[in-house]
Simulated scan of single mutants.
Amino acid sequence: MLELKSVDTCYGQSQVLFDMSLSVGQGEVVTLMGRNGMGKTTTVRSIMGLTPALAGEIQFKNINITALPPYKIAKLGIGLVPEGRMISPNLSVEENLIATATRGPAGTARWTLPAIWTLFPKLRERKDSMGNQLSGGEQQMLAIARALMTNPELLVLDEATEGLAPLIRQEIWTCLLGLKREGQSILVIDKNIQALSAIADRHYIIEKGTIVWNGDSASLADNEDIKRRYLGV
C-alpha cells in the first residue's frame, strides 16, 4: 500500500533522511520507532508532502506521490494524526469532525459521526465542547477521529500517545487494535515498545535518518541489544 524507496529529505542545507526505505502492506500495522530527533516526524512529513523528498520515491497504491501536494495525497486516502494534534480550538468537537468528513477514495463512508461516537464515547459526551476545552487525551481522540472521518485507506499517527496519562494511552492502543481487526492499514510512530509489539505486525527502527533494523514483534522482543542501542530500553 505504502512504499518509501531510498528517500532523502532535507530542511534547507541540512539533510535529515538518508536512503530511507519502508513499506506498509494492506491491513498491516507497522511502526516507526527511534529516539527523539532521528527523523520520524520528517518521514511522516515526506509521506504527506509537507516536506517533499529531494531524492528517492514514495508510492501509495502504486501511485508515485513524491511530488504531489498534501491535499492530493490526502484525497488519495492517507489520513494523518499529526504530532501535537493540531485540532481547531475554536470549533466544537462535532464541528472539528464535520469539517474534515469525506467519503474517502472508495466513495463509501465507513466512518460517520455515529461510528465515531461508538468508537469514542467520551467524544460524544463532549461533542458540543470547544477544542480548547478538551483534555490532552480527549484532544488525541479527536485528532484520531478527525483523520478517520476522511475514511482513509492508510492511517498515519505521529507520536500517538506522547504526553498522555497511562489510562488514556491504553484507550488509544485499544482503539488501534480494534481498527487493525477491521483491516485498517496503520503506520504508527511512538516509543512504547511493549504496547506496539502487541499490536503491530512489523517494526522499523530509525537512527540519524536511516533505517537500522526492521522485523516482526517476536524478533524485536528477542533482540535486547537493538532495543538498548537504538531505543534506550
Rank of each mutant, 00 (worst) to 15 (best):
G178E: 15
V93L: 02
L231Q: 08
L17H: 05
Q133S: 14
L134M: 12
N36Y: 00
K227V: 01
K61Q: 15
I193K: 11
T31A: 02
W117V: 13
D8A: 00
T42I: 04
L17C: 09
R103L: 12
T41V: 03
A145G: 08
L76S: 01
E159S: 02
E153C: 12
I65W: 03
A109Y: 01
G39W: 02
N223R: 04
T210S: 14
T100Y: 02
I78Y: 08
E57L: 01
Q15D: 04
D216S: 08
G25N: 07
Y204D: 00
P69N: 10
T9N: 06
P152K: 05
D158V: 07
K208D: 15
G37Q: 00
I73H: 07
A115M: 10
M130Q: 13
Q170I: 05
E182G: 03
D8P: 02
E125W: 10
E159A: 03
S46G: 01
D8I: 11
G25E: 11
Y11S: 12
L2N: 00
I63W: 14
S219L: 10
M38Q: 10
T41W: 05
K40R: 06
Y11F: 09
E125D: 14
C10A: 15
L54E: 13
S197R: 13
E153H: 13
A147S: 10
L113N: 01
L68T: 02
L76K: 15
I47L: 03
D216L: 10
T100R: 11
P105R: 02
L177I: 11
I47N: 09
V93C: 12
D222V: 11
I172M: 10
L167R: 07
G25D: 07
I172G: 04
V188N: 06
T9G: 05
E182W: 02
L97H: 08
I205W: 06
L97V: 03
R169G: 09
G39A: 03
T174A: 14
R126I: 09
K75Q: 15
E95Y: 02
L196G: 02
G107S: 06
G178K: 05
S219E: 15
V16D: 03
A74S: 14
S185Q: 09
T161A: 11
E138L: 12
I73Q: 04
V212H: 13
E153N: 12
E28G: 00
Q184F: 03
I168N: 01
S14V: 07
G232D: 02
N64S: 00
G136C: 11
Q194P: 02
Q26E: 15
S23V: 07
A143E: 13
P105G: 09
R35K: 12
E138K: 13
T102A: 03
R103G: 05
K75F: 07
T150V: 13
A67M: 12
L177D: 15
L17F: 11
G25I: 08
E94I: 11
A67T: 00
P52R: 01
T31H: 04
A101L: 01
A200G: 13
I226N: 08
A195M: 14
A53W: 05
Y204H: 09
V30A: 00
